[in-house]
């Protein structure tokens, strides 16, 4: 996927460059300015991810949302998913392992949902563009919505 993005970007960049050099230069300048503008927040997010994942590791997650943890487990799973930011290719296999370890589909549904939709560590970036109020509202709504996701996944997946 990253490769596709690079190829697409490169093709567009070449088209842009052959059409208008000055405009392309301007676009690249814009790209750099936009990046430099948000870089401090990006670095904060990356450090926070490191600190959080050192403390909340897969073993601890497994302990917290293990078998028969029930609704309490769903809440814990949602909270853990909300405050951590785990790349997909680590998150999904971890979730699969948790399922094998006996965690319920409802807990995993809540965990995956908040992991992707709610971003406590990415809030510094979101606030810079959308302001505090809207950022908090969006994250709260997404958090609440994740329980709906958990409930329906629990109903659908376990009944099949």
């Amino acid at each position: 996927m990253t490769l596709t993005m690079y190829i697409l970007t490169l093709i567009l960049l070449i088209i842009s460059f052959t059409t208008n050099k000055i405009k392309t230069k301007k676009a690249l300048k814009k790209a750099w300015k936009a990046f430099e503008h948000i870089l401090p927040e990006f670095l904060v997010v990356i450090l926070l991810v490191g600190l959080l994942l050192a403390i909340i590791n897969p073993e601890l997650i497994a302990k917290l949302i293990g078998p028969s943890s029930g609704w309490f487990g769903v809440i814990i799973a949602a909270v853990v998913g909300a405050i951590t930011l785990i790349p997909g290719f680590i998150a999904f296999p971890t979730a699969a392992l948790l399922l094998d370890g006996g965690a319920g589909y409802m807990q995993i549904g809540a965990f995956i949902s908040t992991l992707m939709m709610v971003g406590v560590v990415t809030m510094p970036v979101e606030i810079k563009y959308f302001g505090k109020k809207l950022t908090i509202q969006r994250n709260l709504l997404a958090f609440a919505f994740s329980f709906v996701v958990a409930l329906i996944i629990g109903l659908v997946v376990t009944s099949i």
């Binding site: 993005m5 697409l8 676009a27 690249l28 814009k30 750099w32 936009a34």
Partner: peptide, 17 residues
Amino acid sequence: ILIIPPIFVLLGLLDIW
């Protein structure tokens, strides 16, 4: 470093073109 550069370059191109 790997994923972000194309996003910003695309964003710059979108903004200009």
